[in-house]
Structures are given as structure tokens and as C-alpha cells.
Simulated assay, not measured.
Amino acid sequence: MSGQHPIIEEILIYRQLGKLQSTYIEGLLKVTDKKTHKVHTRFNQTLAQTGRLSSVDPNLQNIPIRLEEGRKIRQAFVPSEPEWKIFSADYSQVELRVLAHISKDENLIYAFKHDYDIHTKTAMDVFHVDEDQVDSLMRRQAKAVNFGIVYGISDYGLSQNLGITRKEAKAFIDRYFESYPAVQEYMHEIVRQAKETGYVETILHRRRYIPEITSRNFNVRSFAERTAMNTPIQGSAADIIKKAMILMSDRLEKEKLQARLLLQVHDELIFEAPEDEIQILEKVVPDVMENAVTLDVPLKADAAFGDTWYDAK
């Protein structure tokens, strides 16, 4: 209903603010230890089908990032020692890099090896324009397609995301596959393999069984096909960051650092550390993350730090 009446936008904003108040402000205060002022989450190893760690009681992985009002909640997360900082490092477009690796698409590999902004590069390829002609709208549309492809998006899903017609969305997806033909081949091949074997694998050979892929029900089968396309990508990204965390623990010990790994949120690792260790972490953390596995394209990790989690992002 968005866009059909001015009040709809107001209701959506009200609901977002209401959610921030009840779930994050009041919710986090309820689970804060009265003596230490800390919150302690629990990580589940085997809950998320993709293989990612999930956080519960409270869920610290869904602290909002998109709305500025929501991001401010991150100001409440501060180091537990005086003179310490929050240090954050996150993988840059790890799922798209994994897609380049497993699809072996030459255009995608070229873009990452030459350190292109991948959304700008996709916009250049899809719209057939030079880099300096890519405007913010083109880049935004290319970004939606890049991430949509990873999740097996339909022309309908893309049209909803971008507020364009299904016909325009279909033309967009078709042009994407013309630019990155090996990606389309990978999508077809992984679905065929899953139908044949009943499972798909990540690059570290973790399996996910998808029996529904041979269902006679169209909706059930379509969802299973999207799962087959997405799991090797998202699942491999999950494997990579888990491996990085294990290597990180060993490296922090080896370097005799006081820094502590506090939290993993999707493709991001969050630490607390004394101020005099920050310069070392700026070298050590990206080094461990970028060398956790070897792909056909380089892995890239960006680091930042600040007095609070908010300031570190």
C-alpha cells in the first residue's frame, strides 16, 4: 500500500520507531546485567540453515543499521575497560566474491581482481555506459540486481524492490546475465545437480539437503530451487567468517594481544581493545580475514574503530 496514501508512510515510520522502543531500548534494558551493565547473548551454531551463527536472548545481530534512529542504539555498546576502543572489521561484498569464485565468470572475476566498485561495474555493463556516466540511481539499481541474483530473485521481486514494472525488471535481469553469462550457467547447473543428488555444497564441502527440489508443488519447488542457488554462496560466506574467527583466536594469542572478539554480525567481526593495540589490529585483523580461504578473487576486509559501536561503523 506504500505510495497509495500519505498516511501509509507515517504509519510505517511509527511502526519502525515503536519497534525500536519496545524491542531494542526496553528489550535490551530488560536483559542487561544490573551489576556489570553488560548484555550476554547466546550463539547458536546449528539454527540458521545457511550455517551462519545466530544470536539469541538477546539477538545482537539485528541491531538496526539502516535507519539513523536505529543506528543510534549502537551508541550504547561501549568497551568494558577504560581507555579501550571498539574495533570493527567487515568483509566487503563477500557473497559476490564467492559467486565470482564458484561461477568462474570472467567479467566478475576481472572486476574484483581490478578492485572495481562492483555495483558501478555492473551498472556500466548493464546500461552500456562509461564509469563517469554511472549516476546514483543506476548504481542503486545495479546493487539491487547484484544482491537479488544471489538470492535467486524474480522479475516480480526486483520490480517491487526498485519500484519499476515487471517488464523493466525482466529486461534488467536479462541484461545482467548477458554481461555475466557464467553466473546464469551456474544457476542452471546447481539446480540440476541438486535435483540429481538431493543436496548442494559450500566451497568447504558442508552439505545442505534439499529434498523439496523435486516437489510437484510449484511454489515449494521454486523456493527449493532458489535455496539451491543461494546456499553455496551464503553458506560459503558463513564458512569463511567462521574459519576467520578460529584463526583470529589463534592469532590474537600468538601476538599476545589483550583485544577480545566480542561479536559476529553477518560479515562483520567486532572487538574491544586497548587504544595502543588499534594500530596492530588494523594490520592483523584484515590479514587474518582476507587469508582465511583462497578464492579466485581476493577477499577484502575493511576496518574501523571508535569509542562506541556506533562510532566504529
Results as ranks from 00 to 15, higher is better:
15 R>G: 06
16 Q>P: 02
17 L>C: 09
19 K>I: 15
20 L>K: 12
21 Q>V: 10
21 Q>F: 11
21 Q>N: 10
23 T>R: 09
24 Y>H: 10
25 I>A: 03
27 G>M: 06
29 L>F: 04
29 L>M: 06
30 K>N: 13
30 K>E: 14
30 K>F: 07
30 K>H: 13
31 V>M: 01
31 V>T: 03
34 K>G: 12
34 K>Q: 13
37 H>A: 00
37 H>I: 00
37 H>P: 00
38 K>P: 00
38 K>N: 02
39 V>C: 09
40 H>A: 09
40 H>N: 10
45 Q>V: 13
46 T>I: 07
47 L>A: 03
49 Q>R: 15
49 Q>D: 13
50 T>N: 14
50 T>S: 15
51 G>E: 11
53 L>H: 11
56 V>E: 04
57 D>S: 13
60 L>I: 07
61 Q>M: 15
62 N>L: 08
63 I>S: 02
63 I>C: 01
64 P>T: 14
66 R>V: 12
66 R>L: 08
67 L>T: 13
68 E>V: 08
69 E>N: 09
69 E>F: 06
72 K>R: 14
74 R>E: 15
74 R>L: 12
78 V>R: 08
79 P>T: 08
79 P>D: 05
79 P>G: 05
80 S>M: 06
83 E>C: 12
88 S>R: 12
89 A>S: 03
92 S>T: 04
94 V>Y: 00
94 V>Q: 01
96 L>G: 12
97 R>V: 12
98 V>H: 00
100 A>K: 10
100 A>Y: 02
102 I>V: 05
104 K>Y: 12
105 D>Q: 06
106 E>D: 08
106 E>A: 07
107 N>H: 10
107 N>D: 09
108 L>M: 12
109 I>E: 11
113 K>S: 03
114 H>K: 15
114 H>F: 10
115 D>A: 09
116 Y>I: 13
116 Y>W: 15
119 H>P: 08
119 H>S: 06
120 T>I: 12
124 M>I: 14
125 D>G: 03
125 D>C: 10
125 D>V: 07
125 D>W: 10
127 F>K: 06
129 V>N: 02
129 V>D: 01
129 V>R: 05
132 D>G: 14
133 Q>V: 04
134 V>F: 02
134 V>W: 01
135 D>S: 13
136 S>P: 00
137 L>P: 01
137 L>S: 07
138 M>K: 07
139 R>F: 00
141 Q>H: 05
144 A>Y: 07
